Each structure stands twice: as C-alpha cells, then as structure tokens.
Simulated scan of single mutants.
Amino acid sequence: MTVPDPHPPIGVLVHRSTPPERIAGFARAAEDAGFGELWLAEEFLHTAAPVVAAVTLGATRRIPVGIGVVPAAVRHPAVTAMEVATLARAHPGRLVFGIGTGVERWNERMGVRTDRPLSVLRATLTTVRTLLDGAVADVGGDPFLLRSAQLGHPVAPGAVRLVAGAVGPRALELAGEVADGVVLAHLSSPRYVALARERVAAGAARAGRPATGTTLTAFVIHAVDDDRDRARASARSAVGHYLHALAGTALTTVHPIGPELDRIVAHGDPARTTAEIPEEWIDRFAVVGTPGDCAGRIREFLAAGATSVVLSPADPATGPRELTGVLRAFRSAPAGQGRA
C-alpha cells in the first residue's frame, strides 16, 4: 500500500475575500484534503497576515503556513521580528514568513514612499534575521533606526524560514543573497521559474551561499474543470487583471508576447485587457483544465526549478475540497506536455 506524501509540493492560497470567521475552517479543510502548504497574502485593507497566520496555525496540526508577503516599508523590522518570533516559537518548524517591497500604489495611500525599495527589503530581511537569531541589531537610521535591540524570545535555528517576495532579476538575486527562499507572484510560468532559479543562484553564489537550500514558491492562477473551455473561461478575468497590472515586468517579458501585450494594455482599461487576451495566454499564465491537465502543468513548474506550487483559485468560492482531484491526479499521473 502506497502512503500519500504528507507534504506534497502543492499549496493553496487563502483568497483575500475569505471572511475572517471562515479562515480557520478553510485551513482545516486544506490540511484534511492533503495539501502540502497553506499560504496567506496580505492585501491592503483586507486581513493582516500575521494575525491570520496565528489563526490558521492554531486551527491546524501539521500543515506548514506561509505568508506571502508583508511589505517591508510599512512595518518596522523590530515589530516584524516580534511577530515572526511569537508565531515560530508557538508553532516551531511550520512557519514560512515572506517579506517584500509591497505594492507601490498601496504604500503611497498610506504615505509610505521610498526610492530604494530593494535597499529597504535587504535591510529588513537581514535585521529581522539578526533579531530572530538572538543577536543585537543596531541600525543607524538608513533606511530605519534601531538602537541596540535584542529580542526577548529569539527562535531556535530552523524554526522559521524567512523568504523574499521578488519579481525582477535584482530582487531575485537579493533573495538568493540574504533570504531562505523566494515567493514568485501570480503570472508565474515554468519559463519564468527557470529565469528566477538562475537569478537566485547568481545571488547565492555572490554571497557564498549554496543555492540548493533556497526554496522557490510559485503562486499560480488556477481553475479546474472537466470541461477545459469552462476552466479557461473561469481563469480569464484573473489572468487579464494581472497582465494589465504586471505588463512589462519579468513575469511577462520572459515570453515572446511583448508587442501584442503592449498594444492590448495601452488603452488603460483592465476590462478590455481581459476581453482581448488570446486564449493561449490563459494556458501560458495559469494552471487550468482537467485535474490531469493541472497535475501535468504543476510538474512542469517543478521541473523548471520550483520547490512548490501554490494554487490561487480564480473563483474565490473554490475551497480546498474542490481541488482534491488535482492532488489525486498529481500523485498518480506522469507529467503532461510542456507549454512554458
């Protein structure tokens, strides 16, 4: 008898529209369904990721919980380190805590501006790690001030992984230099994952670190249905939204679609972008189709260098139980045809 992998390299994302009172039930359902990871996003004026992490960790027993990601410029690293240490000591070995530069337009709505987002991210990651390790952190005011600080409750080695949210090559290299892993944004594809793995390895080499220890988690737009056309139709709106927002970033420029994408987004209307994107782009930028199609596509991400793939359902009403067919297909079926 074959025993299912207790932590398959497939996670599921709690959608921002999930009401707080339903998050614990969602987390238990994800664990019971057999997912290997549960991930939480922090989006402006929705739920606070560290609080949601406390809820989900307390509601489950084994499943690792990842935060992908909190914005570095919004929280002081001392506060972030306190949050991380509290969660990691209460639930050792289960927390993955992601920190990124944040979404610029959200930061600006709070009056948070920085012309050096990667410098802030680097300083935050290194300072949080210093504090978690129990050492004294002393930062002279650029990009933040922290005088002779030491955590009252540091964490044991390996109790938590600090990962970076990254999109462009410089951010990916930074992750390789100073983080335990990287979280890749929606619109990830196997082709982009291969680029990301290359840049992370370059950063790790520059810092004299082994790249093999750096995790690479890919968030993907997902829709599953026995009717492939229906699955694509379900994912179209999400793919169009992210293409409109992320056109011109490494997520899209790695593909030979630049001139056509520029033409489609030039009018500035996200709804029109959604309507005009070719059907093939939905396959390119999402994990869609039958359970077997989706399982094959996930294997392509893993072959390209991802250590895990996190399904972000295009339909917010989709829960973990509706996705178990993908897990079964992944465990039983070989990889499908590639379409990087």
Results as ranks from 00 to 15, higher is better:
324 T>L: 01
141 G>A: 11
2 T>N: 09
215 T>Y: 02
5 D>R: 06
19 P>C: 04
45 L>K: 05
173 E>C: 02
267 H>T: 11
271 A>P: 02
198 E>A: 12
321 R>E: 15
268 G>M: 12
266 A>G: 07
262 D>Y: 01
174 L>C: 08
238 A>F: 02
191 R>F: 08
13 L>S: 06
116 R>G: 04
236 R>F: 08
323 L>Q: 14
222 H>R: 08
18 T>G: 06
310 V>C: 03
243 L>Q: 09
84 V>Y: 03
311 L>A: 03
163 V>Y: 04
103 V>M: 12
179 A>C: 04
116 R>M: 05
254 V>K: 08
334 P>N: 00
119 S>R: 08
255 H>Q: 15
197 R>V: 07
173 E>A: 15
55 V>Q: 08
45 L>I: 05
253 T>G: 13
321 R>M: 04
145 L>T: 15
198 E>D: 14
18 T>L: 12
249 T>V: 11
198 E>R: 15
153 H>D: 10
262 D>P: 06
252 T>Y: 04
50 P>N: 07
143 P>K: 11
301 F>T: 00
274 T>D: 06
59 A>H: 14
176 G>S: 10
272 R>W: 10
62 R>L: 04
299 R>I: 01
214 T>Q: 08
288 V>W: 06
85 A>D: 10
327 L>V: 06
41 A>E: 11
298 I>P: 03
285 F>Q: 11
149 A>E: 08
35 F>Y: 08
12 V>D: 00
222 H>P: 05
27 A>N: 05
183 V>A: 05
163 V>N: 02
148 S>Y: 13
199 R>E: 15
16 R>Y: 06
36 G>C: 05
306 A>R: 04
215 T>L: 12
189 S>T: 15
87 L>V: 09
195 L>S: 05
3 V>K: 08
173 E>V: 06
156 A>P: 08
196 A>Y: 03
98 G>A: 09
185 A>R: 05
14 V>L: 10
94 R>Y: 00
126 T>I: 13
213 G>V: 11
63 I>C: 01
162 L>M: 12
31 E>Y: 03
99 I>Q: 04
11 G>D: 01
268 G>I: 13
16 R>T: 10
337 Q>N: 02
18 T>F: 02
89 R>H: 09
263 R>Y: 01
279 E>D: 15
242 Y>L: 13
7 H>Y: 14
334 P>Q: 01
334 P>K: 02
66 G>N: 05
184 L>H: 03
288 V>F: 06
197 R>K: 10
64 P>H: 01
231 A>G: 10
201 A>L: 09
19 P>K: 00
296 G>V: 00
22 R>W: 01
307 T>C: 05
256 P>A: 13
56 T>Y: 10
70 V>T: 14
